[in-house]
């Protein structure tokens, strides 16, 4: 058995992490940034370790990020794309999980549309560490760790800073995980959305709620734009039109200027240019979006190392 670092057996969500664990993962990620910019991007840290990326939802970005992270640390990385509909009939999610776990990988990285998939599978899989790479509208911990690393580089300590998250909070695992992380790390969260895109009792996260984007700009340090699921938005009556969405909640240059010169822009990707974010904003000096992608690899290296990079326990 491997001895995991930072007391981590799995990474399910920010809700299960404490301040020390978050800080340790971010700092370890910081140490890995350097590997990614070298010409020879390979370290032996995870040699002999097997990582399986089990993705039930399409996500080229996150899957690639985990894949590169594993490979740069010399782990054997296997990608499996399983469609949710195929697992509905015949082989169940549990079968798939148990089958892969029987092949004795060290880490299973799982993305699934069902909230709590990792929690559910962990009850049945004994020797495999699980990383949640996004489960339904529940949590997306490695994205938040990534964002914290990017913020560390750009604004230093996040404590006391104000992050304004704009968009479909109701269906966003990124928003939920950030609201949890904010409490632990001491930053403030404002959320901006109409009531159709807010979940019940969202105020219990101790966030400030705005329906008017312009009112939330003043005093914001980080503008965090969520991806709009354009198909979902109008068919569920969550919003009348994409056009009205962009007008009301889209980030354009005028709004960015109103937020002030210190304000940075983040987005978990992939972006809908011209919907939640205008092209000139996305490409502006204030945008940290590509840096987030870069740091995503480093943080995932840290996550994999934490779960399977430790010394072997007898």
């Amino acid at each position: 058995m491997l001895k995991p670092l930072f007391g981590l057996k799995h990474i399910f969500g920010i809700a299960d992490l404490n301040r020390e664990q978050i800080t340790s993962l971010v700092n370890l990620g910081d140490d890995f940034i350097d590997i990614n910019t070298r010409s020879v991007k390979k370290e032996p840290t995870l040699r002999g370790r097997t990582v399986i990326n089990l993705f039930f939802e399409n996500s080229t970005r996150t899957r690639t990020s985990f894949e590169i992270a594993g490979k740069r640390l010399s782990a054997d990385v296997i990608n499996i794309s399983a469609s949710t509909s195929a697992t509905k009939k015949g082989e169940t999610l549990l079968d798939t999980g148990q089958t892969l776990a029987a092949m004795q990988p060290h880490v299973l990285v799982i993305r699934h549309s069902v909230a709590g998939t990792c929690e559910f599978l962990s009850e049945f899989l004994d020797n495999t560490a699980l990383i949640n790479a996004g489960d339904g509208s529940h949590e997306h911990p490695t994205q938040i760790l990534t964002d914290l690393l990017t913020l560390k580089h750009n604004i230093g300590d996040v404590a006391g800073k104000t992050m304004t998250i704009v968009g479909d909070i109701a269906h966003s695992r990124v928003a939920r995980s950030h609201m949890l992380a904010a409490k632990i790390m001491g930053y403030k969260v404002r959320i901006v959305a109409p009531k159709t895109l807010l979940p019940a009792f969202v105020e219990n996260y101790d966030c400030e709620i705005f329906h008017d984007f312009d009112e939330a700009l003043q005093g914001t340090d980080i503008l965090y734009m969520l991806r709009v699921q354009t198909e979902r938005l109008t068919t569920n009556c969550c919003f009348p039109s994409i056009r009205e969405y962009h007008e009301t909640y889209g980030l354009n240059m005028k709004r960015l200027k109103a937020a002030g010169d210190h304000c940075m822009v983040m987005h978990p990707g992939p972006m809908n240019r011209g919907v939640e974010i205008a092209t000139d904003v996305a490409d502006s000096m204030k945008s940290l979006i590509l840096e987030q992608v870069e740091h995503g690899v480093a943080v995932r290296m840290a996550a994999l190392t934490a779960l399977c990079g430790g010394a072997t326990e007898e």
Partner: peptide
């Protein structure tokens, strides 16, 4: 539907 469904990110029934 309530605070529990919000925390879990699971769709609620009001």
């Amino acid at each position: 539907e309530g605070w529990v469904s919000t925390q879990l990110g699971v769709l609620g029934m009001p």
